[in-house]
Simulated scan of single mutants.
Amino acid sequence: MSSRRRGALRTAVIVLVAAIVVGASGFLVYANVTSAAEREPLAEVADDPAVLIDYSRDSVVLTPASDPNGEGLVFIAGAKIEPVAYAYKLSGLVDAGYTVVIVRPFLNFGLFETRPLSAFTALAPGVSDWYVGGHSLGGVKACMYADSPEVRGLVLFGSYCANDLSGSALTVVSLSGNDDGLSTPEKIDANKAALPAGTTFVEIDGANHAAFGDYGLQAGDGESSIDDSDMRDAITEAITGAWR
């Protein structure tokens, strides 16, 4: 190979490596720019004497202050959403006696998460029976955890499964919003076949994609017309009704 060709090849390799480095760096920056939790709903959870909060950057553990029922939910946050942004909407479950562990997935994208479910259930050692769930892409990852033998059921917020759970005996609750512009009612309906025949489907009137958390507006979403407290109540009633 001539020196000119070696030089051209070396230059091409350098350019390729530089492009990979720049692309990876750009993605890391993008992945770590997240939607923060709104203050008022979070303050309401903090002021609730029935809920104990233990949180770090990567997880939020909500525990009943009294009479926990020994059951819990591991909930995977949606893409680029702070875990604590789901605390208010899930706090009704805690008031009902359930422990809730809200997880930040690796790089803030559920599909990049590779840790075993036990890494999250270990955060609440007092829980003996577990459900898994998630919002949007977090729900897709939750479906993958649902095959674990310790899991009793699955909860989806504006989400659907990429893997087939239709033959499982899981208790599944699929919540959607009729004004969701991302996980639209049509998409939810088109993916029903991946869930067990006994799945509870609840379409919440006036809810959009972002209504399942408290983190502000989301590009491409519909407009929500449901009050936050009504949304929290709808979530709580649908899930606890299926879990009884």
Rank of each mutant, 00 (worst) to 15 (best):
V17H: 05
G26D: 08
F106N: 04
G138N: 05
A65V: 12
L195R: 00
W243V: 04
D233A: 15
V61S: 01
D95H: 06
A46G: 13
L28S: 13
L93W: 07
A43L: 15
K141W: 02
S174P: 00
E223H: 13
L175C: 11
A12I: 05
E223I: 14
T121V: 06
L137D: 06
D221I: 06
A211K: 00
S224R: 06
L175G: 07
F106R: 10
G92N: 02
G241N: 09
I81E: 06
V100T: 03
F120Q: 01
H135N: 11
N69E: 10
G134M: 10
D129M: 03
R10H: 00
V33F: 14
P49M: 07
T236A: 08
P116S: 12
G167L: 04
S229R: 14
R6Y: 10
V22I: 15
L9Y: 08
N191H: 15
L107C: 00
K89H: 09
D205A: 12
W130E: 02
G153F: 11
V60T: 10
L182T: 07
E203A: 04
W130P: 02
V60P: 01
A242Q: 02
G241Q: 08
D233E: 15
D228E: 12
G70K: 09
T171V: 14
Y131V: 05
D179Y: 11
A46M: 15
K141M: 08
V84T: 08
N69R: 11
G241T: 08
A8I: 13
G7H: 11
G72T: 08
T34A: 12
A119I: 06
L73V: 15
F212L: 10
K80V: 14
V100G: 01
D205F: 00
R5H: 03
A36S: 15
G133I: 06
Y98K: 02
S229Y: 10
R244T: 11
V100E: 02
Y30H: 15
D95T: 13
V127A: 03
A146E: 05
V151D: 03
G133R: 05
I188T: 13
I53M: 11
G139R: 01
A12M: 04
D205P: 00
A31V: 09
A50V: 10
D67S: 15
K187H: 07
V84F: 03
V29I: 15
